[in-house]
């Protein structure tokens, strides 16, 4: 028996909007720790890892570890039917091939049940070791989204370079080139508006921009985003989900031939 009640149902709506275009089908894993997902895109270039900790749910019942295969496009369709202020409850019986999403309006005057078929998915989990990163950049998520969008109108790839000067995002295309440098800036009114750069070693890596633009669909989940960079490692783009966990995207770099 599984029963997860999330008062801030809009979080789950936003999570699905953030991942549904990157991954078609995925297993959601439910354990005492929380509700989690790890899935790669079809080309095995990008990976999404989601964790919503059990403590973040108003009610969390998970009698045994369970993995539920879902089509994320279909799940997103169902969650779109929930209001932004609705409480969302996920329910599944042991051995069942369906999951039920229950949506309750804040005043309890409307209650809806949506039942979705589960599917068998061969999960390909990767072990992601803890790593010391050469550089960690924290910046406003809206700023990062703006940079990715702007650069993708010029080129297909972005070079991210972190030096003592700051973090530089560069691209080139048929019409020309673009460089955007963000310097550390901690003298702001609100902490979430700061750009903070922790650098152990300078690092420069090249990535396909279209994946970054997909990751920025998670922007509504967090005011800030963290980029963790090391040479020869996938970048980690992390959006923290307040009081619940995180959504992390890993993207393999382009490799010089």
């Amino acid at each position: 028996m599984l029963e997860l009640r999330l008062v801030q149902g809009s979080l789950l709506k936003k999570v699905l909007e953030a991942v549904k275009d990157l991954v078609n089908d995925a297993n959601f894993d439910c354990s005492a720790t929380g509700f989690s997902l790890q899935a790669m895109d079809s080309s095995h270039v990008a990976l999404v890892a989601l964790l919503l900790r059990s403590e973040g749910f108003e009610h969390y019942r998970c009698d045994r570890n369970i993995s539920m295969g879902m089509n994320l496009g279909n799940m997103a369709k169902m969650l779109k039917c929930a209001g932004n202020d609705d409480i969302i409850t996920l329910k599944a019986d042991d051995g069942s091939d369906v999951v039920t999403f229950m949506f309750e309006s804040p005043t309890q005057d409307k209650i809806a049940d949506f039942e979705m078929k589960l599917m068998d998915i061969d999960s390909e989990h990767l072990g992601i070791p803890e790593a010391e990163y050469h550089a960690i950049v924290r910046m406003p998520s809206s700023e990062f989204a703006r940079i990715c969008k702007d650069l993708s109108s010029i080129g297909d790839t972005v070079v991210i370079s972190v030096t003592k000067e700051g973090v530089k995002f560069s691209t080139r295309g048929d019409i020309g080139t673009a460089n955007i440098v963000c310097r550390q800036n901690t003298t702001v009114d609100k902490p979430e508006e700061a750009t903070v750069i922790e650098m152990n070693e300078p690092v420069s890596l090249t990535f396909a921009l279209r994946y970054f633009n997909s990751f920025t669909k998670a922007t509504p989940l967090s005011n800030t985003v963290t980029l963790s960079l090391s040479s020869e490692l996938p970048v980690v783009v992390e959006y923290k989900i307040a009081e619940m966990g995180y959504i992390r995207f890993y993207l393999a770099p382009k490799i010089e031939d």
Partner: peptide, 14 residues
């Protein structure tokens, strides 16, 4: 010239 890396080149199956 560069080519797109794949995640399996960096992470092992769990």
């Amino acid at each position: 010239k560069s080519s797109q890396g794949r995640l399996e080149s960096f992470f092992k199956p769990a």
